[in-house]
Write a protein that binds this DNA or RNA. Structure first.
Lengths: 112, 112
DNA sequence: ATATTATACATAAGAAAATTATGTATATAT
DNA sequence: ATATATACATAATTTTCTTATGTATAATAT
C-alpha cells in the first residue's frame, strides 16, 4: 500500500466487475472480497464505497434489494440490464488504460 | 478516450518517468511526448500539468532552469537526486498497482 | 462479565487532483 | 489577415477520495 491514490477513478469499475462475476453482493462483502483478491493491497473504505454504490444505483446501473440476516441489515446490489452493458464498456476502457500505462512506464514489458 | 478519469493520480509518476528517460524536458514538450507515446489516448491538460510541475519542484523532486529560445520562454525541468530516488519508488508502486488492477479486472490474463 | 473486534449500514468535513475557462505572448502557416 | 501551434500561468469548479464520526448488532477474547 501507499499507492492508494493510484486507484482513484477505478472504484466504480471494480464494483461493476465484481457484480458481473457474483450476481449479487452487499457492501461489506465487496470490501472483504477486494481485500482478499488483492492480498490486502487495496482496502476500500466505507466513505468511498457507500457513496459509490448510491451513485451507481442513482445512475441506473445497479438495483438494490434489502435483506435481513438475523437481526442485521444487508443491502444486496446487482447489475441492471443497463449496468451489464456499461460494465462491458468500463472494462474495455480499463484494459485500454492499463495497456497504455504499462507502455508508458515500462515499454520493455509491453511488447506489441 | 473517455477513460481520462482513470489517469487521475498517475500524472506525477508519468512526468517523473519521462524525466528519468530524457534528462531534461519542458512542460509543453511533456504534453506532446505523452500524446505521441499514447497515440492520442492521453492528453495532459495545461491546468493539470503546470500545477503538477510546480508541486514536484516544491517537493524537491525537480530542478528548474529557465531558457529563452528565440523570443519565447521555456522552463526546463530535471530530476534532482531525491527525485531520481523517488522515481524508482513511484514506478515500483505503479507496477504493483497495474498488476493488482490487471488481476482484479482480468484474472485470466494475469497468470501468477 | 466486559471489552474488543467484526459485521453492516451511513454521512459530513476536508483534501487531492483533476477539468474547464481564461489570460498573456510569440511564431508559423494559409 | 486569420487560424493554429508554441509556451507559460492561474482561478473556479468538479470529482473522488480520506478521515472522522455516528448508529447498531454479533462474535470473540480476556
Amino acid at each position: 500500500m501507499g499507492n492508494q491514490k493510484l486507484y482513484k477513478g477505478s472504484l466504480q469499475t471494480i464494483i461493476l466487475k465484481l457484480l458481473e462475476e457474483n450476481d449479487k453482493m452487499y457492501g461489506y462483502e465487496i470490501t472483504q472480497k477486494v481485500k482478499a483478491l488483492t492480498q490486502g493491497e487495496l482496502k476500500i473504505t466505507e466513505g468511498a464505497l457507500y457513496p459509490a454504490l448510491h451513485k451507481l444505483e442513482a445512475d441506473g446501473l445497479l438495483d438494490v434489494e434489502i435483506a435481513k440476516v438475523g437481526n442485521r441489515m444487508r443491502k444486496y446490489y446487482k447489475l441492471t440490464e443497463q449496468g451489464t452493458k456499461e460494465t462491458v464498456h468500463r472494462l474495455a476502457e480499463m484494459q485500454e488504460f492499463l495497456k497504455t500505462m504499462q507502455h508508458l512506464v515500462n515499454p520493455k514489458l509491453s511488447l506489441e
